[in-house]
């Protein structure tokens, strides 16, 4: 057991899976000698060599399509896209082939690959380095979309993603890469893809969030408890698709009041799907309109203004209070 950052925890997962299974390979831009621009793949090339840790040419569609080919042959590639903002040209390969080859071939061919990429704002980056566009991936039949929130669940979810027989988009909250440390066990640990987690129990309000939004959400829950005596039940989705609606619909039946927090733009974002499921499955229990605290429907501004775009503790707290105050 050691206290690790998310970067170190993901590195540990890669390290252990590569050691355990020689079919696991890592590829991407600068992932080898440089160890990745965020150092997530640091040291892998030294231990496993350049045949299994491939520095690729600078071509995102190439990385995805090349990984698909490897996966078709039986390898388990973990491909890195340097920033999610550059993944859109890889999207075509993932949508047209990774997501479809199992179905198209009737199960003869499968694509057990992981496409990792850092997403989200808050690190004072250039344009195209701060988006949160998980909805594109989550909307695609045949893909799984996973977004961890802490070092420990990033590690266990990545191990599960690597072992998953289907393609997994692994969206890493770069704002949380080094923001805090957590105890991560040395021995291997997995976490089921498609399962959310109740990280804080409460009876007054259900708050659903994921990824980098977990930190302001939990901080807001503390503040609501401290200032207002409100008990929030906080659910970390962990997997966006396939969406686990069992836990949050059950929680809604207990609290009757719901808040969804995401950093992605509001319209057609994951919140829209979450709330629809709530309405479909827990409608009669709802005591107030379901609210969303999200990014705005704009391009996230450069770093002087990015925190005006990103949901923060204050926006979450005030939306929670409005939800709690609502009377029919």
């Amino acid at each position: 057991m050691a206290k690790l950052t998310m970067v170190q925890a993901i590195n540990l997962a890669l390290h252990q899976e590569m050691k355990k299974d020689e079919d696991v390979v890592v590829l991407g831009e600068d992932v080898g000698v440089d160890g990745g621009v965020f150092r997530v793949t640091d040291g892998l090339i030294d231990e496993f060599g350049e045949e299994r840790v491939m520095d690729t040419p600078l071509a995102e569609s190439g990385i995805a399509g090349f990984a698909i080919g490897m996966a078709l042959y039986g390898l388990k590639p973990v491909a890195e896209i340097q920033f999610s903002g550059f993944a859109y040209i890889a999207f075509h390969q993932m949508e047209a082939h990774a997501a479809r080859l199992r179905g198209r071939s009737g199960g003869r061919f499968t694509v057990p690959m992981v496409l990792r990429m850092p997403y989200g704002g808050g690190v004072r980056a250039l344009e195209h380095h701060s988006e949160s566009r998980e909805a594109y991936w989550a909307h695609t039949p045949g893909l799984k979309t996973v977004i961890p929130s802490t070092p420990r669940n990033a590690r266990s979810l990545l191990v599960s993603a690597i072992r998953d027989p289907d393609p997994v988009i692994f969206y890493e909250p770069k704002a949380s890469y080094r923001a805090f440390k957590e105890e991560v066990p040395d021995e291997e640990e997995t976490f089921p893809i498609g399962e959310s987690q109740i990280v804080r129990e409460g009876d007054d309000l259900t708050v659903i969030a994921y990824g980098a939004m977990m930190r302001p959400t939990l901080e807001a829950a503390d503040k609501l408890k401290e200032d207002d005596g409100i008990d929030c039940e906080v659910i970390d989705l962990l997997t966006i698709s396939p969406l686990d609606d069992a836990k949050f619909t059950k929680s809604a039946q207990k609290t009757g009041r719901i808040l969804v927090v995401h950093e992605a733009p509001r319209s057609f974002g994951p919140g829209a799907e979450i709330i629809t499921r709530l309405v479909e499955k827990s409608f009669v229990y709802l005591e107030a309109p379901v609210r969303r605290v999200t990014g705005y429907d704009v391009v996230i501004p450069l770093y002087q203004r990015e925190f005006d775009y990103l949901p923060g503790v204050d926006r979450i707290v005030s939306a929670a209070r409005e939800t709690l105050d609502f009377k029919a």
Partner: peptide, 25 residues
Amino acid sequence: NLPVSVPVGTQALHAVGIGYAMKLK
């Protein structure tokens, strides 16, 4: 034999990945 690929040219990358895997194995 992979199934027919409709989006023009996209399948070329798969043959390279498959080839790499053959070589690695």
